[in-house]
Design a protein around this nucleic acid. Sequence first.
DNA 1: ATGAAAGCGCTAACAA
DNA 2: TTGTTAGCGCTTTCAT
Lengths: 339, 339
Amino acid sequence: MESNGRRRPATVKDVAVEAGVSRGTVSRVLNGQPYVSDEAREAIEAAIAKVGFVPNRAARSLVMRSSQAVGLIVHEPHSLFVEDPNIGSILLGANAALSEADYQLSCLIADSPRDIERLSRYLHGGLIDGVIIVSARVGDPITRAVADLGIPASFVGNPRDIGDSPHVTIDNRGAAREITARLAATGRARIGMIAAALDRDSGADRLAGFVDALGARFDPQLVQSVPLYSYSEGQAGMRELLARCPDIDGVFASSDAVAAGAMEVLKEAGRSIPGDVGIVGFDDSTWALRCDPPLSTVHQPATELGRAAAESVLRQIRGQDADAGLRVLECPVVWRASA
Amino acid sequence: MESNGRRRPATVKDVAVEAGVSRGTVSRVLNGQPYVSDEAREAIEAAIAKVGFVPNRAARSLVMRSSQAVGLIVHEPHSLFVEDPNIGSILLGANAALSEADYQLSCLIADSPRDIERLSRYLHGGLIDGVIIVSARVGDPITRAVADLGIPASFVGNPRDIGDSPHVTIDNRGAAREITARLAATGRARIGMIAAALDRDSGADRLAGFVDALGARFDPQLVQSVPLYSYSEGQAGMRELLARCPDIDGVFASSDAVAAGAMEVLKEAGRSIPGDVGIVGFDDSTWALRCDPPLSTVHQPATELGRAAAESVLRQIRGQDADAGLRVLECPVVWRASA
DNA sequence: ATGAAAGCGCTAACAA
DNA sequence: TTGTTAGCGCTTTCAT
């Protein structure tokens, strides 16, 4: 029976009075502790329903020093946040894992220096037991803030400066190496790369994998760097590459969105895919299937990344962090028609 | 000077001792209250920095009965959450408005009955001062939970059963009417609609606007209903329509993603756009510009919707809800090449 | 098995 | 202008 209207919320005391017991006993029932008579338990449960009692979490957090809530910080440039195909899945994965453990996920956005300032106070405040950090860059103020806090934390991704902090990631370099090698194996001679987001570990590692795979055949002329993993940057990058090396016959785009933009430009330039130019992407997002022809790419297990990060935080909260926090998830190549 | 390591967090008392004043005075400084000598203020500020004090928000929330945090509940089916082009912008808009008022935005996901259960306890708990609800459907349990709570709330959108609760929305029906009329004015004789998400106010209203615009020329045969605003549903819907009415020469798709899917199918069927068939969408999302030809559509002011909803919640928190919470934002038609 | 009482960290009313 | 004190709602010894 939900009480409606603007009445003062019921407290343990109200429940205790209603049930004719003490607050201590009510608390024991609330927390499922032993040593409560069936009689008392039933009376209290009835009273709780009757007065519409819901525990005040601020009070509980204060005394227990824990809140059963985990934050997930997203620090993305404005534009990307809206489009990033992985964030939504990471969120859903983290939420699922936390939900099973009866933890509340609270997604926090860092979109300005002011946000970061407020956020670090918020995290300090005892309303959050742990935190998942998505898409941090090297030197990210969020990283510092979290480290200073000493609160259980786990990163999705692996910015260089988090040291051996718990994190879950994929082997960007290995996957990039693998898909580049396969592209080369289709008989391409002049393979280029549109290398996005080199300020992120994912971006830098994908480039490194590309260089690995090409070995002596690597030609820096064939690499065009662009700032973001986006469709329009893909277009811009491809235009540059085409102008500089008209004989290009293979492209590794460092995300599917980038690849989609590049394909658009290639078609406008009259190049057939995969006939004249083979192209591969990264992420296996909705972009990949929407391309024509469908894009060969690397499958990124976004949901599982979110889930694993949440589980890592949960383990730390429970004090089991002896157990390794680091995990590298599989990301198989998905071969389709674009190369 | 941030204190590191796992030391017990500093409290007001520590600051008071360090500064040689009482806890009351420290509290006054913390809350920017008058009647504090410059001398005391300086000593306290120095002490705060020295001991690395950050207020415990659980304690503060408990006594103040407010937390300076606003929740934003997203209740979307799994698949859509990942793709919805509006949610990210709504979030960013809400965050910007709240940030200016020094409120923390906490985005909460409702992805299962269990989530909803936990969420309503969470909202009850005093850790959240108000809430923005995105994409609720009629009969949504979230709506009931929020109503029972009596907490400041504002909806984005207008499900029929929220009554006159504060909400911010667009005139879906009017906009649908307008863009359909324009499509008709291009000389189309057999205009159909792929009507998605009729269980949502937005979906139902867009269909109503379509019917309005066509008047006597409306033919139910030319309407295909699909469950979700998605690319693949757009493909499915278009296939149905094409099979049933091969003479179709105009299509109103109820979102850009749906339109993109429909365009794909039309092209496969050998229809030229806008030559054989004119097509228009809704949202003005990234899909629209990515289509070939670019899609005529209705611009949805997603960022502003988020901002306005946040401002509405803020007003309610401040007790100014006499001021109207309802706002209908403009959504102009954007005319491009697809029709 | 249960009640009484102390106290988590903070703010606010009251005295001084 | 400042210190003192009484709670906010909850959990948790310590008695009983």
